[in-house]
Design a protein around this nucleic acid. Structure first.
Lengths: 220, 220, 220, 220
DNA sequence: CATGAATGAGCGTTCATTCAT
DNA sequence: GATGAATGAACGCTCATTCAT
């Protein structure tokens, strides 16, 4: 009869998880006290335990909700069956969209997942990392084979390069900043695909799928 | 900046700081107990306080020593008076050398500096960040003005892009890995400057200052 | 003695008290959470407070109800004006009957009364203990004086011996076990009165008032 | 290098365990706070954790030390190869000696072992209980077979009867009381073996091994 | 230089209890 | 009568730090 309370009053849980995610992202999971979360939510520390089993289960819920959404987005991209370059463009754009929507969760994921992986409860983090790596290196290798990516590319290095650069953006991205996620993705892809140097002979710079050629104000 | 016993037996301090840095890097500063450091150093927790004022002062010493060396390297680069592209190459290469030599300190810096900045004791972190930003955006702007970097570059975005991508490498870099810091810098610069896509008309790929054109085994 | 809602729906109170007594007996009063009681009763923890003032008042009611019944039984025995040996037999048999009917309450009484006595609210526990002691030592002394109990008996020690042995039975007694309370009383009395050793010259073993000479199946 | 500290400074541990045992015995394990133990020992709660891993490990150490001593005593009795009646006498006497020496531990054992058994850490409690049961029922059955205990004895019932009566003595026994453990054992055995009733034909009452026939003042 | 033992603040968590609905 | 959500005090425990030896 004691239910794990996952289904009861889901909107209050959401609010509290949002608060918790914000604090975890700002100060780190370990350095965040449940009293701090409770303060921020306008209640006492003990009251959180009416809604959640533990501090850890809040973290769990935040991360797994984020990863579920993320992979839903990625799977949609994959289902489209695009070429390697377009796949990279779409994956990066989708990633920045997720950063836009789940900034706190992404930041937490970045900071905490290294030492969470290994705990059975967070096994899905490792699994996600594995799928992630396959997805990216696979796409890069397809691109090299198809001649759209440079033949001398070390795909292992390039994978880490892309992965890190996309996700660290969560540490400085502000959802109300000048650029929306699509525009940031466009500029980011422009740098990653064609480089920042002027390369003789390169003409077009409109490389991202969403691009218009000039920085566009946010459509919000 | 920690005063207490700075001059007494400096080689023992170094050993202890190296141990501490390794543990801080592996588990995070907050999650590291002084007992853990002491264990690893073969002493009891209380004994560390003969050498250091506090856990925080160990962190302080680790970070400031690292930043001092880093800026010595950067200043040497700047003193050479290179062009913008060569400056970028030299700065990136120097950065990877620092990662190679101070992997733990760099990892700590990455993980902890966001929430340390703001504390007066760690004011130099903020100052360093400011100089860093000026150095990079200045160099990028000079390059755009000189026509060696693309005219449509958002230098603010490109700065963050470069900064993050270089330093997160500390999280996966292994000093005994396949590539040495110069080779990694070379490949990294190749991606950053010319992109990963095949661009019609691009000729040379030997972009890094140290490069030989083919991946070189470590000269160790 | 708990006043608040004593008269409202007394049958529901009874049910809840039975549930509570069972859980108190199984896990101890302190270790029992009101949530556990509520779970077992199919309601939420807070809802119990409609029926009872506090967890303590449940305990109070359980214990005082039990003691009231117990003393009613004892007083009936005393009113019969039996001889010392027959009184002992009747008191023991009555005690096992109470264990049979109020196993949980007896177990709680055994476990908790030592640290409850002293609290004003549970003063009746101490008073009961006092009457109990007088009753038993008095009966034993009468028996010694009358020559039916051994002259060298230390009545103080024998009292504790009898008291403890009877009541700890509550910790292993199962109402649906092989023997009913009367049969257990009979065997128990046989041991206590005549000993477990073979004593030359002792003939009869049918010592308990209810006895038939052979173990009797339960009359339920 | 972090040792479980079992061997370090054993005399301080002993002192603290004695304090803890006393408090556990008086108020119950669950109801005892570590602050209370620390208070009684003249230190702060946290300081206890320099000496012990947890509150539970204090309990563990108290109980296992007691059981080790107890079984050493019992095994010595068994090694003597006595007859059934003498074995019962010796075991009971030994038990009261243990109560004399480890009153607190025995009281804790009585109160807590039912709900500790089942936890893997306290598996030895169950094992001890099993050996205990075998020892007693075996001895009783031998006695019945040899004709020194009554033929109509229900050995299962008699076992519980003996077991409980001996050990609950810990709840009222005072080491500085009128009788020492041997005298209490003697009187107790007198009741158990020959009963409290006057039985025609019974001759000797000097039943306990140590007995002198008259209550003896403590030899301390 | 290092140890052994302690401090004291704070942490995550539990739980009896309250109360508006 | 019962629920859902909260309170607040206390609990077991951790850990940076201190200090006499």
């Amino acid at each position: 009869m004691a239910k794990s309370r996952v289904n009861a009053a889901p909107e209050r849980r959401r609010e509290l998880l949002d608060v918790a995610a914000e604090v975890f992202a700002a100060h780190g999971y370990n350095a965040t006290t449940v009293r701090r979360i409770a303060d921020e939510a306008g209640m006492l520390a003990g009251s959180l335990y009416y809604h959640f089993d533990s501090k850890e289960s809040m973290l769990d819920e935040i991360l797994s909700a984020f990863l579920n959404e993320l992979w839903a987005g990625y799977d949609a991209v994959l289902a489209a069956g695009l070429g390697p370059r377009e796949t990279v463009e779409a994956l990066v754009t989708e990633s920045f969209r997720e950063i836009d929507r789940h900034r706190a969760a992404v930041a937490i994921y970045q900071k905490e997942s290294p030492h969470l992986a290994g705990q059975p409860r967070f096994g899905y983090l490792d699994e996600s990392r594995r799928r992630f790596e396959e997805l990216w290196t696979g796409t890069l290798e397809r691109g090299v084979a198809a001649g759209v990516f440079r033949a001398d590319l070390d795909t292992g290095l390039a994978y880490r390069f892309l992965r890190d650069t996309v996700w660290v953006a969560a540490s400085w991205y502000r959802p109300d900043g000048r650029y929306g996620p699509e525009e940031i993705a466009r500029q980011f892809l422009s740098m990653v695909l064609d480089g920042i140097a002027v390369s003789t002979g390169t003409v077009g710079t409109d490389t991202a799928g969403t691009g218009t050629g000039t920085p566009s104000p946010r459509p919000r």
